[in-house]
């Protein structure tokens, strides 16, 4: 590993540690972001679930992957706000005089975001198990499903971090991530796509969240997932690449 890469890694590790420590000190926000997905899952399962026909699969089992993906969207808002706060305060100036670049800076935020999300995911899975979530996945299936989810969380977090660079205020940063929270709704996350109006099918079937949900659901139920998993992975890799490239350019633009 080159010297610069080793330095970058050490810097990103230190900044990730900072992000996690800051989250632990700001428990109110973390608890809100943990409770929200759990509450939403309960709302879907007990209020709406009865009216949704998901065939042989129990609704709770059907909806869990969607709730996990929704979680990533909630986490993204927090990431955008933290990045934006660092930009507004003197933190970024200090980091730049310490020769810290955009990638280690944002990687630190993203790693902390993934850690927060992993906690939320665990909590959602725990509560889901209590209310009747009974997956049939093999160990490999679990690993693959969790891996896909982590890939999505990483991509969405980095996109959120880029949004945090653009936004002029932390409040605006939160708003920019709104679409990330909204994306799971017009997908097969909560209701089968064929129950949606025809004109929406084209979007719903080809947006990134649908193959992600379909493959996670398939893996958790031990059903064949076909190419959906690869499509989902390609989406995540593409979004991540876009986010990294965009954030590099935005960082240079905003720190001129």
């Amino acid at each position: 590993m080159s010297d610069t890469a080793a330095n970058g890694l050490a810097t990103a590790t230190a900044l990730a540690g900072r992000g996690i420590l800051l989250s632990r000190r700001n428990l109110d926000a973390v608890i809100t972001s943990l409770m929200l997905p759990v509450m939403l899952m309960l709302v879907f399962v007990y209020f709406f679930g009865g009216a949704i026909d998901t065939g042989d699969t129990r609704y709770v089992t059907y909806v869990v992957p969607g709730v996990l993906v929704l979680c990533a969207g909630f986490g993204a808002a927090g990431t955008a706000v933290s990045v934006s706060e660092d930009m507004r305060r003197g933190t970024v100036d200090r980091l730049r005089t310490l020769d810290v670049g955009a990638v280690p800076f944002l990687a630190g935020h993203v790693v902390a975001a993934v850690a927060r999300n992993a906690l939320a995911t665990t909590l959602v899975l725990g509560v889901a198990a209590l209310i009747g979530f009974r997956p049939a996945a093999t160990a490999a299936g679990w690993l693959a499903a969790i891996g896909l989810l982590l890939a999505y969380i990483t991509a969405v977090s980095w996109l959120a971090a880029a949004a945090g660079l653009v936004a002029r205020t932390p409040e605006a940063a939160g708003a920019v991530t709104f679409f990330m929270m909204f994306l799971p709704y017009p997908s097969s996350a909560f209701v089968p796509i064929d129950t949606m109006p025809d004109w929406l099918h084209g979007f719903s079937e080809h947006q990134p969240v649908t193959p992600l949900i379909e493959s996670m659901r398939g893996l958790l139920l031990d059903q064949p997932v076909g190419g959906a998993a690869w499509t989902a992975l390609a989406w995540c890799a593409g979004l991540l690449a876009l986010a990294v490239a965009a954030s590099g350019a935005l960082f240079r633009l905003r720190t001129r």
Partner: peptide, 10 residues
């Protein structure tokens, strides 16, 4: 700088 670069909760 003029803007604090320390984290208040640390």
């Amino acid at each position: 700088g003029q803007y604090a670069a320390v984290d208040e909760t640390l």
